[in-house]
Amino acid sequence: MAHDHDHSHDHHHDHEHSELSETQLRVRALETVLTEKGYVDPAALDAIVEAYETKIGPRNGARVVAKAWTDPAFKQALLDDASAAIGTLGHVARVGDHLIAVENTPQRHNMVVCTLCSCYPWEMLGLPPVWYKASPYRSRAVKDPRGVLNDFGVTLPKDTEIRVWDSTAETRFLVLPMRPAGTEGWSEERLAEIVTRDSMIGTGLPKAVP
């Protein structure tokens, strides 16, 4: 488990606590009041938001991964400081500070768990999947990551270490999956199409190469 966050930033935030932005607080307040008064149904609101699942945030993760696969200098920069590296891609929207890219290798597979606050890199991945927000995923991922991966249909070699990263409100993780064999010479655009959301959370692998 990694807990080596940077404590030096100037956010008035006790690290052990959850955090919502001012705007998120106001949105939650509205939802609470409208629900209490019977004007909205939270399940119906969720359904509306989920209908826009693919329309929220820039969802640039796949492009970033594809670029890292094809451009060794960018890959190094990404692993050194993901926020800064992604910031150099002019056409890609900004991401929050403290985004850390963790690289899968034959020796080590990375998997990210998160919480229900703001620590999901939605700028890269879009909306979190429902299972990701569920407490069973979080608790099991820490105790039995290999079992969770099996549930997702991912079987790794026995000697591959599985490392679970615990996101925080300020430190978020992006898994850099291994580039599949058989993709030599592919363009970034073509590579981006096989990079799935789950492969960047670490609960999946890139799509199989046909």
Binding site: V27, E31, G57
Partner: peptide
């Protein structure tokens, strides 16, 4: 641009 925008829209 952000999830909360979709929530405000949904409400």
């Amino acid at each position: 641009r952000e999830p909360w925008e979709a929530q405000a829209f949904a409400m």
